[in-house]
Each structure stands twice: as C-alpha cells, then as structure tokens.
C-alpha cells in the first residue's frame, strides 16, 4: 500500500481547534458585491418599467421580463454566491445545471400537459 488518508475528515488540520484555524484575508473594498447590487437593482427597475410603461405587450413582454429574471440569477450566482469559485471539483455546478433543466422540464411540461381542453375542463 503506497499511501493513505489517515483521518476521516480533515479534522486534524482544521476542525479540532475551534476558534483557531481561521485565517482572515486582507481587507479590501467589496467591489464585486457593490457591482452586483447595482446590476440587480438595474435589472429590476428595467423589468418594472417595461411592464408599467407598456414598452411591449403580450408574449414579447413576457419574454423580456423572463430574460431579465434569468440575468438576475446570473448576477446572484456570480457576484454573491461565488458560484464558480472554491477549490475542489465543481459538482455543484452540475447539480444546479440539472435542477435548472428539470425546472424547465417540469414547469414547461406541466403547462403543456395541462393546457388540454379549456383552462377549466370540468
């Protein structure tokens, strides 16, 4: 046997000494967060104005505000949730990617399936 991992977790290095083991990073201005915040406000205001001022109507309007909502996800994920950062394998990206796919499938599929007859078929 050539090598081994001796512990169940990484406790020896980081877990045991609660209170110890935390190394702060250098102080810097939270640019990322500020930019993210401004972007999220901007996207919201845009969606809001598009609807209240009737820039468009019907399906095009729905499309536009849905796109703005999706951009909001992107902002939250990258500016606040640091989605792609962190070390180690990035399985969480896969997990959320699947979730997004199934969300679309379940919502879209349900609407499609349940659109039979009238809205009230009974």
């Amino acid at each position: 046997m050539s090598s081994h991992a001796a512990t169940h977790g990484g406790h020896q290095e980081s877990g045991n000494g609660h209170g110890g083991g935390f190394t702060p990073v250098e102080r810097r201005f939270p640019w990322l967060h500020v930019v993210g915040y401004v972007l999220s406000l901007l996207l919201t205001v845009l969606a809001f104005l598009a609807v209240l001022h009737h820039w468009l109507s019907g399906n095009p309007l729905v499309t536009v505000i849905m796109v703005l909502a999706v951009l909001q996800i992107v902002v939250q994920l990258f500016f606040f949730m640091h989605f792609t950062e962190g070390h180690g394998p990035k399985y969480h990206i896969l997990a959320l990617g699947f979730a997004l796919f199934f969300t679309v499938a379940f919502v879209g599929g349900s609407i499609w399936i349940m659109s039979f007859g009238d809205t009230q078929a009974y």
């Binding site: 046997m1 081994h4 001796a6 512990t7 169940h8 977790g9 406790h11």
Partner: peptide, 11 residues
C-alpha cells in the same frame, strides 16, 4: 495494513 501505516482514525 502495515503496523507502521496505521494512524489515529477520526470517527
């Protein structure tokens, strides 16, 4: 396992 390889185990 070789005796020398065995270390404390965390459970």
């Amino acid at each position: 396992p070789q005796p020398g390889e065995i270390q404390d185990i965390h459970m």
